[in-house]
Amino acid sequence: MTPGSLSAPGTVNSALFDSATVGALTVPNRIVMAPMTRSRAASDGTPSALMSTYYAQRASAGLIIAEGAHPTAAGRLGPGVPGLHSDAHRRGWSRVADAVHDAGGRIFVQLMHAGRLAHPSFLPDGVYPVAPSAIAARAEVYTADGRRLAVRPQQLTGAQTLTIVEDFARSAERAMAAGLDGVEIHAANGYLLHQFLAENTNLRTDNWGGTSEGRIRLTVEVVRAVAAAIGPHRVGLRISAGNRFGDVIDHDPHTTYTSLVQELAQEELAYLHLVEAGNADLDDRIRALWPSALVVSPTLSRPDDVTKVGAADAWLRRGADLIAFGRGFLANPDFVERIRRGAPLNAPEPIGIYGGDHRGYTDYPTLEQAHTVRT
Rank of each mutant, 00 (worst) to 15 (best):
residue 130 V to D: 01
residue 373 V to Q: 12
residue 299 T to G: 13
residue 330 L to W: 01
residue 132 P to D: 05
residue 304 D to F: 07
residue 111 L to G: 02
residue 241 A to E: 12
residue 193 L to W: 03
residue 39 S to A: 15
residue 238 R to V: 13
residue 268 E to R: 15
residue 64 I to L: 13
residue 169 A to W: 02
residue 375 T to A: 15
residue 281 D to H: 12
residue 356 G to E: 03
residue 16 L to V: 06
residue 219 T to R: 02
residue 13 N to R: 09
residue 274 L to S: 04
residue 221 E to V: 01
residue 211 T to I: 06
residue 207 N to Q: 09
residue 206 D to E: 05
residue 236 G to Y: 00
residue 347 A to C: 11
residue 138 R to K: 15
residue 186 H to P: 04
residue 16 L to D: 04
residue 313 D to F: 07
residue 368 E to A: 15
residue 141 V to C: 11
residue 34 A to S: 14
residue 168 F to K: 02
residue 252 D to C: 11
residue 37 T to R: 03
residue 311 A to W: 10
residue 256 T to Y: 08
residue 169 A to S: 14
residue 289 L to V: 08
residue 147 R to D: 00
residue 7 S to R: 13
residue 354 Y to N: 01
residue 142 Y to S: 13
residue 356 G to K: 05
residue 86 S to E: 09
residue 147 R to T: 10
residue 238 R to D: 12
residue 321 D to V: 01
residue 345 L to I: 07
residue 363 D to M: 01
residue 55 Y to P: 06
residue 102 D to R: 01
residue 359 R to N: 11
residue 91 R to P: 00
residue 118 A to H: 01
residue 191 Y to I: 11
residue 154 Q to H: 14
residue 102 D to F: 04
residue 318 R to G: 02
residue 58 R to T: 01
residue 361 Y to I: 03
residue 207 N to P: 00
residue 138 R to H: 15
residue 99 A to K: 10
residue 233 H to N: 14
residue 313 D to E: 12
residue 30 R to H: 05
residue 34 A to L: 09
residue 79 P to M: 05
residue 27 V to L: 09
residue 193 L to R: 00
residue 128 Y to T: 14
residue 87 D to R: 13
residue 300 L to V: 02
residue 342 G to Q: 00
residue 368 E to R: 15
residue 339 I to A: 04
residue 24 A to E: 15
residue 344 P to V: 03
residue 198 A to R: 08
residue 93 W to D: 04
residue 138 R to P: 10
residue 39 S to C: 15
residue 260 L to E: 03
residue 144 A to K: 12
residue 346 N to A: 00
residue 63 L to E: 09
residue 59 A to Q: 00
residue 292 S to W: 13
residue 52 S to I: 07
residue 168 F to Q: 10
residue 50 L to D: 05
residue 199 E to K: 00
residue 288 A to R: 08
residue 159 A to D: 14
residue 367 L to K: 04
residue 146 G to C: 10
residue 262 Q to M: 10
residue 186 H to S: 01
residue 340 R to N: 04
residue 152 R to A: 14
residue 249 I to T: 09
residue 192 L to W: 05
residue 366 T to P: 11
residue 84 L to T: 06
residue 5 S to V: 03
residue 336 V to T: 12
